[in-house]
Design a protein around this nucleic acid. Structure first.
Lengths: 204, 204
DNA sequence: GTCTATATTGCGATAGAC
DNA sequence: GTCTATCGCAATATAGAC
């Protein structure tokens, strides 16, 4: 069973690395969870680090795949941003580990972080950037906004919620896990917030 | 030098834990950075875990201290939210480690996470919750918004930006680090987005 | 390709001198 | 209160049998 053992190792390692931190997981532990011998990790991936890199690759490829399902050029900016947000929601619901690995990478970057950003995150950033630019040109969004900042605001308003899930479970009395409703309201706030015909009175 | 060695250990450990993960840092490494003997960690903190807990305590106490500087009851909701955001900005600029520890705790919670949330984060959440409620009662904010979701949106739009700093440095061409400008625009987007007299036309 | 056994290294904690 | 030395343990990686 060649491919099978490899895939089982990746699947088994996926939840373990963020749960205990890279250094906190032992290859024995991963091998046990995958029902393979610990020596198989060195055999297939050249060692623990190679396995970690393989997990990263599997995870972040999913972002690319998802981005390809929508086309920024063929939709109105607001519609595109809504679709994009729903796509992000979908990723979080189906694979909660992507964000955990991203956060792990951001606090202690591995040599592959830059590669991941260039390969997978930059495209998402650029796509949103284009959508907002189009909206400004079309007179839908305010023209004096900093677009790069707006992209970060959109990313934050959507993603932070998912990352804070453990906090929400403790802080919220009636925790009901309505992620879709959250994203819809968040996107409404964001789109309302950058709309051109909705200027806030300046407050000195 | 009693207190001095203790404090030096906390200061030395602060950047190391998030940089390599809890398990990835050795007590010898921390002791060396603090210019104390490694045995001092067990002597002062009862072991590595006690030192980690002490670092958490020092860091998250700062949130409490900052919250006490503004009073939700004595300001208009918008003003309060702006002040709160500037306070968060201030914390991030003066101590980048709080967020790193929060992220570390969220991906692999230590036994102290719940304690930290109850002691330090819940109050911040409740304070914002009150400000938004007041704004709704006063007819300033939309009355049909989910307040808890709105609090998460506000937290996300502000905090995510700081956490993504390493990504921003790679993705943005002219990275100029204008955090204050970011927060001001983000808050404007958020406040505009929940304003009552600014309803978005429904799509569909 | 898969296993056992092991070489080697480094860890956290502590006993005991000063 | 601070140091050295060391104990006991667990880690990764690998050699070699099957």
């Amino acid at each position: 069973m060649d491919k099978d053992a490899k895939n089982r190792l990746i699947e088994a390692a996926m939840p373990l690395f963020p749960a205990k931190g890279y250094a906190g997981v032992s290859i024995r532990e991963i091998a046990e969870a995958a029902h393979v011998n610990s020596a198989a990790i060195s055999y297939y991936f050249g060692g623990k680090e190679g396995l970690y890199e393989a997990v990263l690759d599997v995870l972040f490829s999913q972002i690319d795949d998802a981005i390809h399902t929508i086309d920024v050029l063929q939709e109105k900016p607001q519609e595109f941003i809504r679709h994009f947000a729903m796509m992000v929601l979908n990723i979080h619901m189906h694979n909660p580990y992507i964000m955990l690995y991203l956060y792990q990478e951001l606090s202690h970057p591995s040599p592959y972080l830059e590669q991941i950003i260039q390969k997978h995150i930059r495209k998402a950033f650029n796509t949103i950037h284009i959508a907002i630019s189009k909206g400004i040109s079309a007179g839908i969004f305010k023209k004096d906004i900093n677009i790069e900042h707006a992209v970060m605001s959109l990313a934050g308003i959507i993603n932070f919620y998912f990352f804070m899930t453990p906090v929400r479970k403790i802080v919220l009395k009636n925790y009901d896990d309505n992620e879709k409703e959250y994203v819809q309201q968040a996107i409404s706030i964001f789109l309302n917030g950058i709309r051109r015909d909705c200027d806030e009175k300046k407050h000195t």
